[in-house]
Design a protein around this nucleic acid. Structure first.
Lengths: 222, 222
DNA sequence: GTTAAATTCTATCCTGCGCTACATGGAAAC
DNA sequence: GTTTCCATGTAGCGCAGGATAGAATTTAAC
């Protein structure tokens, strides 16, 4: 079951989309928000898999909210929604870590498929903006991507927030002492978290955990 | 029913993929090809919806074939199949009209979802590939001096054949004893190789070596 | 024939890692 | 109010991993 939060300032679209997606057996809309700030709060609170984010909203807009989310919450993918084919905003959003971009006039089927793809670690973009995007890319504009590669196993959901942070650090190849320094806790506590996460993920040692973190995109580079 | 043509020079991968995809009720593999030229002929003849195209092939390669197909056949989407090492070719193929990229080590589910997404008019890019693509772009940036991205491959050349094999095994998360069993040598010898390769790659421990192996595609998953 | 590098093996030593067990404070759930 | 879970901490134990040194064999290069 993929947990989704829908963010749009227009209640009609927000609730309509939530209802349509909720009809799908594999999707579950666990929350909605009407602006960027509310979206950030909801995401922190509900920890969804996917956020469908309207790009144009009053107050904190979709791009800013995406930035907040990707920088502060792990394991969440953001899919942008808009009625406009605005390549500049797409770029901004992707810079902030969005995993894709959908047009509101796309059929529900297409949106659902895109959600599944993104949940599997892909990036989804409407084809007609690809040319523009490639042009932008050629200008060497730098943006970050959430580097998921393959579908993360269910086991990952058993991890606590803190364990996920430690796992991410393992993916960077840090020692327990280094992780302790980074997270402002003692080395002993790091050891506890490491042991726990290794058990939950059914791994054997930190090396396998690090490989896990890299392959499943918990640790991001670039 | 989505009609698919699978193109790969390795019969094992080609037929394996064709069989796996054929099992899905919504997909139908209507043809295969072993090189770029054959792929072009098959596509003209069979008119599929999707072409899964290996990027590295003898003779006419995947990029050239993609160019031929997108320029001469309408209504066909090309999805590239690749490993990590082919990041240089990604950008090229996208310019030639490819609709996305898939890694050969992705689970079948992910590949199927990507096919559905592309068929619905999307573009699919694994973020890790995108990250490498961006690295290439960064490299070509005029005002940026390439200092850190040349390091890795150069150091890799210092490794002996045997050390490279051991490094690959490290990427799988194997213990020294397991590697010894796989390579038919003693655990002590494995330790020697591990120590040596860690030194040459300027790393600190086996965990960092494993991350290295995964990130630079020494270890491949399939 | 000598030199050099790669691969193999043995052997010692020490450290970081992971397991286990237990304790505490806080937050959320009932 | 009690229970449960999480994050944090301490402590001791055993072991895998890594450094280091030395040596034999093969292959290739000079």
């Amino acid at each position: 079951m993929i947990k989704i939060v829908v963010v749009d300032d227009q209640p009609l679209i927000r609730d309509g989309l939530a209802t349509l997606l909720g009809l799908r057996p594999e999707l579950e809309v666990i929350g909605t928000a009407g602006d960027g700030r509310e979206a950030f709060e909801k995401v922190k609170q509900l920890n969804p898999d996917i956020v469908l984010m309207d790009i144009r909203m009053p107050g904190t807009n979709g791009v800013e909210a995406t930035s907040l989310i990707t920088q502060n919450v792990t394991g969440v993918k953001v899919l942008m929604l808009t009625t406009f084919k605005d390549s500049e905003l797409i770029f901004e959003a992707l810079e902030k870590g969005a995993s894709g971009y959908l047009l509101k006039d796309m059929p529900t089927d297409t949106i659902v498929k895109a959600i599944l793809t993104v949940h599997s670690g892909g990036i989804v973009l409407p084809p007609d903006i690809t040319a523009q995007m490639l042009k932008e890319l050629k200008k060497s504009k730098v943006f970050e991507t959430p580097s998921d590669q393959v579908e993360a196993p269910k086991l990952l959901e058993e991890l606590t927030e803190r364990e996920l942070e430690v796992l991410k650090q393992l993916g960077y190849g840090h020692s327990n002492k280094e992780i302790a320094g980074i997270l402002f806790i003692t080395e002993g506590t790091v050891k506890n978290h490491v042991s726990s996460l290794i058990n939950k993920l059914e791994l054997r040692d930190r090396t396998q955990a690090a490989i896990f973190a890299v392959r499943y995109g918990i640790t991001t580079f670039l």
